[in-house]
């Protein structure tokens, strides 16, 4: 029951972020939507690992949480004019 509710809520979050990614007027909106999708992805990987019953899939979530911010930081630095 609680797994179903979690899947539905994560699905709604993915859909809303995807809408902002599509219709975002500026680059900053799309960048924030991509960053939100990275966080939601790490959470959903943990949930999928719990549902499928294989704890080895948690390693992917660890890698995502460690390395997911690099692209966003790079694009933000480019928008700032640093690179």
């Amino acid at each position: 029951m609680i797994i179903t509710i979690s899947l539905i809520l994560i699905g709604i979050a993915v859909f809303l972020s995807f809408l902002r990614l599509l219709i975002g007027p500026t680059v900053s909106d799309r960048l924030l939507a991509a960053d939100t999708l990275t966080t939601i992805t790490a959470a959903s990987i943990v949930l999928v690992a719990f549902v499928l019953g294989r704890l080895i899939y948690m390693d992917v979530a660890i890698v995502y949480a460690v390395i997911g911010f690099v692209g966003v930081v790079t694009v933000a630095r480019y928008l700032e004019g640093g690179i």
């Binding site: 992805t41 990987i45 899939y57 692209g71 694009v75 480019y78 928008l79």
Partner: peptide
């Protein structure tokens, strides 16, 4: 630059589908 960000999202979802 916006296209590059959307490419990131495509590979993001592909990673979950590999799981």
């Amino acid at each position: 630059l916006a296209a590059v960000i959307v490419v990131t999202v495509v590979s993001l979802v592909a990673s979950i589908l590999f799981i």
